[in-house]
């Protein structure tokens, strides 16, 4: 169990999160290594937040936003893509490798696509191996809980 990767799926409320919900309703299978965190928009996700995930020993991060042109906030997903490119560049410089981070675009109607990209990301991380900064599984999961608080705060700020 300790060798199973922990992957964060940072999902936009308006697309990927609904798609993940649909994947569940459709009883589609995807790896349990993927932990879903909900954001009001992928444009809310800072480079710092992504790096802090890796610093906590998380093995991979997938950012899932709306289809290009379909952002609820017009261009949040486009900004997110540029930010993730920068984060990838930093991950290469750090030595973790940019392959552990990926951005995907999908619509809320694409439950099967969510299961597909979650599986794709899981397989990629399995191939890369656990993060070189990996900690004990319990510590990593505690880190996920802290990251979840930040995403919950982002959602709360959005709905106030």
């Amino acid at each position: 169990m300790d060798q199973e990767p922990v992957i964060l799926a940072l999902c936009c409320h308006y697309c990927a999160y609904a798609a993940a919900d649909m994947a569940g309703s459709m009883r589609l299978q995807y790896p349990s290594s993927v932990r879903i965190l909900r954001f009001p928009c992928t444009g809310k996700i800072e480079v710092n937040y992504v790096l802090s995930a890796f610093e906590r020993g998380i093995d991979g991060v997938m950012v899932a936003g709306c289809l290009e042109g379909g952002c609820h906030y017009l261009e949040g997903n486009l900004r997110a893509r540029r930010r993730m490119e920068r984060a990838k560049q930093l991950l290469d410089e750090i030595g973790i490798g940019s392959g552990r981070l990926e951005m995907f675009n999908l619509s809320s109607a694409e439950g099967p696509r969510f299961a597909e990209i979650a599986t794709q990301m899981h397989n990629r991380i399995v191939k890369l191996g656990l993060s070189p900064l990996r900690r004990a599984r319990s510590e990593v999961l505690s880190g996920v809980a802290v990251m979840a608080q930040a995403s919950a705060a982002a959602i709360a700020g959005e709905t106030k």
């Binding site: 710092n48 790096l51 802090s52 890796f54 610093e55 930093l90 410089e93 750090i94 030595g95 973790i96």
Partner: peptide, 9 residues
């Protein structure tokens, strides 16, 4: 964050 990770690695 980046430098801390780089130092560890």
């Amino acid at each position: 964050s980046a430098v801390r990770m780089s130092l560890k690695l």
